[in-house]
Each structure stands twice: as C-alpha cells, then as structure tokens.
C-alpha cells in the first residue's frame, strides 16, 4: 500500500499544538501519537471557535470536511476534521462534552459547510450548537423524538399513525427458532462431552495402575 502522503509530510502535530497553546492557552491542546490509525488533537470545548479560527488563518485550513460525534457512557466526543488542499495537510480535532448538557459554539461563521454538518450532529446525537443560523433537525422529521445514534436509543413504537416495527414483519419466530436450535446443539455437545469423559475414566484408572506397576518394576 502506498504511503506517499506519510513521507510527504505527516500532519505536523507538534507545530499545531505548540502554536495553539501559545495563542490560546485555555485550549490545552495535547496529542498522543498512535501506532494504528490516525492521531487526533484534543482541545477543550470552550475554545473550539478560537482554535478553528486560528488554524484557518495561520495554517490555511480552508476546508472543513466533517463534524462527527460519538457517544460514550460518560461523555460525547465531537470531532472536527479540517483539510488544507494547497499544502496537502489534514488534522483531526476532538473535544469532550458532557452527556447531560452537550453544548459547544458553532463554527458556521468560519466555514459555511459547518451548517449542515452541525445540524446532523444535533439530529443524531443531541449536541447543541450556539449561534447556529438554522438549528433544526435535518435527516429525521421535525416531530421526531429522541437522538438515534446514542447508545441508549430505543426505536419509538409509532410515528404518527404508522407502526414502525410491526410484529408480522419482524421475523421473530425465525430468530427465536435459530436461538433455540443453537441452545439445543450446545446441550447435545455438553452431553456428549460428559459421556466421553465417563468412557475415558476407566482408561485413566488403567493408566494409573500401569504407571504404578512400572514404578514398582523400576523400583524392583
């Protein structure tokens, strides 16, 4: 696999973090080089807007590719992936937000592509963006309840007059049948194993007797 991008100039982590920490010390940008995959730069949630502005003006990150979120048991992490087409660079910024009240400043005044991306983040995970020009759902309907990509999301039973998961189409009998078959097979295997052990026991006794005879033989 070709890694010419790596040889051309892997993202200059130390340059970025030093510059960010110098200009915006409350960002506390840190990174930890990873062996597998990409390395993100972690920053504080309150300083997302000044850090993005600094990276755009200082290092020329004129394209915001994507804003994603990920739900963990104790926090929600939002990632911003920025790109620079003229210098062929890319950087991932990550912030941690609390699960009860995930609020962060919007960057849609820096890059216009943030508009739709932040709306999707709100729709899927419930992250609120301050000063967003159009804060409403984008993919799910406007009267949808819940945030689907959270790990504790339960599909709602009905939407208006339609049943979302009708019993007759959920194929439950086939699924339960498959599970029952697996349980039966596991039981049978366990039975056969105990039978085989029982058969093997007399052999073991015979071996012990032979070993004793050998020992006696050696001794004698």
């Amino acid at each position: 696999m070709n890694d010419s991008f790596v040889t051309n100039g892997w993202p200059m982590f130390s340059t970025y973090t030093d510059s960010i920490n110098k200009m915006i010390p409350e960002a506390k940008a840190i990174y930890e080089l990873r062996e597998v995959g990409d390395t993100p730069i972690d920053i504080e949630a309150e300083s997302v807007h000044p850090v993005c502005q600094h990276l755009k003006t200082q290092f020329g990150f004129h394209v915001l590719e994507v804003i994603t979120g990920c739900d963990y048991p104790d926090r929600i992490e939002v990632s911003y992936i920025l790109a620079n087409f003229t210098d062929n660079q890319e950087v991932i910024l990550k912030t941690k937000l609390s699960r009860e009240n995930p609020v962060v400043d919007s960057v849609s005044d820096i890059w216009s592509s943030a508009n739709f991306q932040e709306r999707e983040c709100f729709d899927m995970l419930g992250v609120h963006f301050n000063n967003h020009p159009d804060p409403r759902r984008i993919l799910c309907p406007d009267d949808w309840e819940g945030f689907p990509l959270r790990k504790d999301y339960k599909t709602q039973e009905r939407y208006r007059h339609m049943i979302v998961n009708p019993e007759s189409k959920m194929n439950i009998e086939d699924r339960e049948f498959a599970n029952k078959q697996k349980a039966l097979e596991a039981k049978q295997k366990a039975l056969e194993k105990t039978k085989a052990d029982a058969m093997a026991e007399p052999k073991k006794v015979a071996e012990i007797v032979e070993d004793k005879k050998d020992d006696q033989g050696e001794k004698s």
């Binding site: 799910c140 999301y153 599909t155 709602q156 339609m162 049943i163 979302v164 998961n165 189409k169 194929n171």
Partner: peptide, 20 residues
C-alpha cells in the same frame, strides 16, 4: 415489500409500503 435489508435496525424505515 417488507423493509428490505433495513428491517432490523432501521428506526426510520417503513417496513413495507403495504402499511399505507
């Protein structure tokens, strides 16, 4: 017909147009 490959985890997919 029946929701297709999205029947299991599709929270936004109607399982078949014959519902409506």
């Amino acid at each position: 017909n029946k929701g297709g490959p999205y029947w299991q985890h599709g929270y936004h997919v109607l399982k078949g147009v014959d519902e409506i």
